[in-house]
């Protein structure tokens, strides 16, 4: 261990390289934002989270002035929780998987402003949870007696449905979407794709129409403008636009069925 640390120090000393960060900051939810620059010693393999940790250890900006450490959120550090989503060099992504070696300098870091900013890089993504509740992104199995095992799912269906289940509600697709903004109430691509996931499930399918009705409501699927930024930004490679087009078909069928069956 001691040897590993000394090797690391040597590398820093040998290279003397610095990494420059330009961070968009905001002191409180209703405050205005400003940028602050930081220069940190380069360490091999560092990512944006470890850089933020370095600032936390030594909160001094590039002007040499003491400053409040930058606030951010993170949990898993392996790109599966979605908590550390932020805009890095203009693109929304997870800070933990943003390796400094692969980023152009200076590295700009900003909060995803599609969401309310709580402080610095911390944002409030609760609208996404609200959207999941709105579209009923769950499978109701609670009852007063044992319902027994559900129907089986075909393996080929399970394979593509599994891809949809990788969504970590990180908010990157909402940030990238030009139709998710303060002029619309569009819930965004992520919760739509969850409707497709739960409607594909053999038990979830029993409530498929409720979910379709939900996304035919305010801020639902109709607000998609086909820019397709979502599918290109999704860190998990979820086929969001395929989900949306498929749900377009399903909601259209539902629309005609509702009209003609009354």
């Amino acid at each position: 261990m001691a040897e590993a640390v000394s090797t690391e120090n040597q590398t820093t000393q040998q290279t003397g390289r610095k990494v420059k960060f330009v961070i968009t900051r905001q002191d409180k939810p209703e405050g205005s934002s400003y940028t602050e620059e930081f220069e940190l010693p380069y360490r091999p393999g560092m990512n944006v989270i470890s850089a933020l940790m370095e600032i936390q250890r030594n909160p001094v900006n590039s002007g040499g002035k003491d400053t409040a450490p930058v606030c951010w959120e993170s949990n898993c550090l392996e790109e599966v929780c979605g908590a550390c989503s932020m805009v890095i060099n203009g693109k929304p992504r997870q800070a933990c998987s943003s390796l400094v070696d692969k980023l152009e300098q200076p590295i700009t870091v900003a909060p995803m402003k599609t969401f309310p900013v709580v402080r610095d890089l911390v944002i409030d993504r609760s609208r996404m949870f609200g959207a999941l509740k709105k579209v009923k992104a769950w499978i109701p199995i609670d009852g007063t007696y044992d319902l027994g095992p559900g129907p089986r799912m075909a393996e080929n269906k399970r394979q593509w449905a599994y891809e949809l289940s990788k969504c970590m509600t990180c908010g990157v697709c909402l940030e990238a979407c030009p139709n998710v903004n303060d002029k619309t109430d569009f819930i965004g691509p992520a919760p739509l794709s969850q409707v497709r996931l739960f409607n594909a499930h053999p038990t979830g399918e029993m409530n498929a129409e409720e979910r379709l009705d939900a996304i035919m409501g305010e801020g639902g699927i109709e607000a998609c403008g086909n820019s397709q930024n979502c599918v290109r930004s999704c860190p998990k490679g979820i086929p969001l636009t395929t989900s949306i087009a498929d749900l377009n078909k399903e909601t259209n069928k539902r629309m005609f069925k509702r009209w003609l069956s009354v």
Binding site: G90, A176, P178, N181, K183, N226, S227, N229, R232
Partner: peptide
């Protein structure tokens, strides 16, 4: 009204579909 609701972001997302959106 649809055009009014859009907030184009082609500077950051330069893909062809996004240009066609705008």
């Amino acid at each position: 009204y649809i055009a009014y609701q859009a907030k184009p972001n082609n500077a950051h997302y330069g893909n062809e579909r996004n240009w066609r959106y705008t």
